[in-house]
Design a protein around this nucleic acid. Sequence first.
RNA 1: GUCCCCAUCGUCUAGAGGCCUAGGACACCUCCCUUUCACGGAGGCGACCGGGGUUCGAAUCCCCGUGGGGACGCCA
Length: 464
Amino acid sequence: MQVRTRFAPSPTGFLHIGGARTALFSWAYAKHHDGKFILRIEDTDVARSTPEAVQAIMDGMHWLGLDYDEGPYYQMQRMDQYKVMIQKMISEGTAYYCYCSKEELDALRESQMQAGVKPRYDGRWRPEAGKVLPPAPADTPPVVRFKNPQSGVVAWDDMVKGRIEIANEELDDLIIARADGTPTYNFCVVVDDWEMGITQVIRGDDHVNNTPRQINMLKALGATIPQYAHLSMILGDDGQKLSKRHGAVSVMQYHEDGYLKAAVLNYLARLGWSHGDAEVFSMQQFCQWFDLHHITPSAAQFNTEKLNWLNAHYIKEMPLAELAVDITQRLANMAVTVHVAPDLQAVLGLYRERANNLNQLARDIAYFYSEPQAAAADIEKHITPEIKPVLAEFLIKLEALAWHAEAIHTLMNETVTAHQLKFPKLAMPLRVMLIGIAQSPSIDQVMAILGKEKSISRIKAYLN
RNA sequence: GUCCCCAUCGUCUAGAGGCCUAGGACACCUCCCUUUCACGGAGGCGACCGGGGUUCGAAUCCCCGUGGGGACGCCA
């Protein structure tokens, strides 16, 4: 049987890190089994769903390269199917009308909470053999409830948590259609997973409590029960739960914040899943390995430091031409225009070894294309009155030099030797003059790439 | 409150009864490299939540605690 997995977000916000990982795992599982990955938008909460959120989710998936084979399907466009199913269940006696008002239900819940029992519908409108139902009130439009079995247990072998059993006594008759006739989440999921032929339901573990209800409905419908895999959640860097109010950001924010998608993907894959000691791997490799085994059942805390480390790794690995395209854009965002010279790829080749963030990398090399502005403290510390004559002499020789790193290095060596100075005495002021800060790769290499003209003019500017 | 889930270094994790004196990675510390800052290299620090069983033997299996989380909606 062909594997079919799905990612089913509700479009009430952006694609956050937890959703992205769920999508990634579903996607990878389908890829691993040569199956299909389906995107389904669960937009039945009309009040909170927005087209912008749909777009944001698709943007996030697109950035990460989580392409879907089918969809997006929109639940709001499948109302007819749900209504057919609801009618079918009513006529078959596996669902029934309930005329309780919201107030009535609230009161019931309240009293149950107070009594210390699990709040649940008491089945007052549930038809039973020999039971006399109250007359239907004319002014209350009914909801439809699923007639959940009252005895026995629902059990499934969760692919990440193992066997889970829940007694039917714990479950009540959930509402599958609202008073206005629209179906509710749990019901739509059941119909969709069935009709779309989903073989593995991979989702967050906040859904384990929905699973027994869904299985019961699937059974009532005579549907095949898919396999379930419930992924634990991702906690923030501080160990706290991620929420709109606290730390949950869009995956696109990582792009803006200077992260490579390869790093984010690799990091997410490794969060709650492992393959022996493997830490760094491609998505191709991941899909080959990923079979839903070795997923950690416990919650995982996000660790930005490790993401940074992976980011550094992928910045080094990436083809220079590709890196150049990305950095050009980031420089443009900083109002810095990349010119033909110095050659951006050469600059990046020199600088990327030390970077773990694309924005940082862009900032580090901005001075190749814009005028540096050194801090007064650095100027005072490094460009001392004592060194200025040495620099002036160095500058004259520099002007006559054949411009390449080795020659510059040799000249620097000769200069410090002649004046009995330590190498940094010359290198540090050059850094400040040439790029505005005291940290850089080998300054001779920086000069070689910066170019003779710019190097000389920037030094001169300090020697008047 | 009721039900469900979870529990190995600070963090992500390896571990499916003996291979464990518990392995790897990030972070941290030390040293090396060095032209500053990084990169890199070599070392180091550092954990099986507690208590009972089962067993010749338990991080691994069972039970009970404890702690954390989730769910209990005409939200998804």
